[in-house]
Amino acid sequence: MSKTRTDVFKSPDALPEPVREALAAMLLSLADNKRVLGMRYGEWILGAPTLEAGIACSAMAQDEWGHARILYATLKDFEFEPTVLEHERPADEYLNSELLDDPATEWPDLLALNLLLDSALSVQVEAMTESSYEPILFKTRKLLEEERFHFEHGRGWAMRLGDMGAGRAALEAAFRKAIGPCLRWFGRPDSGFGRQLVDAGVVNADADELRRRWLERITPVLAEAGLELPETEGKAALEWEGWNADRRRAAEGALDEETLARVRGDRNRSMLMD
């Protein structure tokens, strides 16, 4: 089905109100998740199973923080103050996934963030590569180019642990916990970030289609790694009770205070450079 795009939006002002709000919410959700995900990657720079994996975590942490910074900056056009977004919000205003509330305590938990959550964010970004919202076009390809390596890292480790009895069991357990929140993150079938975003050509897929794309991306990896995860078969099992549509997550919970202070950079605030 091809669609003729009639409108190109050069600034948020050009967008109809509901579309503008939905887009700002989506960009903020992506930015917050990437900011906190970067922190979770960063926590594994020391202590990953191999030296190379620790270095990879360092690189991925840097990427996520770069992406978050770019995304926060785009929200300036929506009359948000990026400094406030980055450094002055309380934990319950962060739109991070519940998977990021606490540090990944074991390596398979980090891999669940790496392979599952990170790629869910990428699927959402990818849906904007031909967006009618022009300012985002100058950013998406760079983000996705860097994300390719994150996916390959997660994939490589899934295969590696899949070959080990104990590793496979731990990985299955970690992935099983993460799949539901990732599938739900795209939003309810009837809403997501708003049907308006699709109709306005800002994104090219609704929540169900994004879920399908994400599954299409991760399912072959899970199969390759020999993981058995019935949770990925269809979306019938999605549970929406207690769903918070604004935060795109189960309503309860938030970042712990220590992580929040680090994410916001509280201690070194006076030395900020930009």
Partner: peptide
Amino acid sequence: ITFTASACPCVE
């Protein structure tokens, strides 16, 4: 201009 990485520390 562009930068090599999105989180290039040398931007400024």
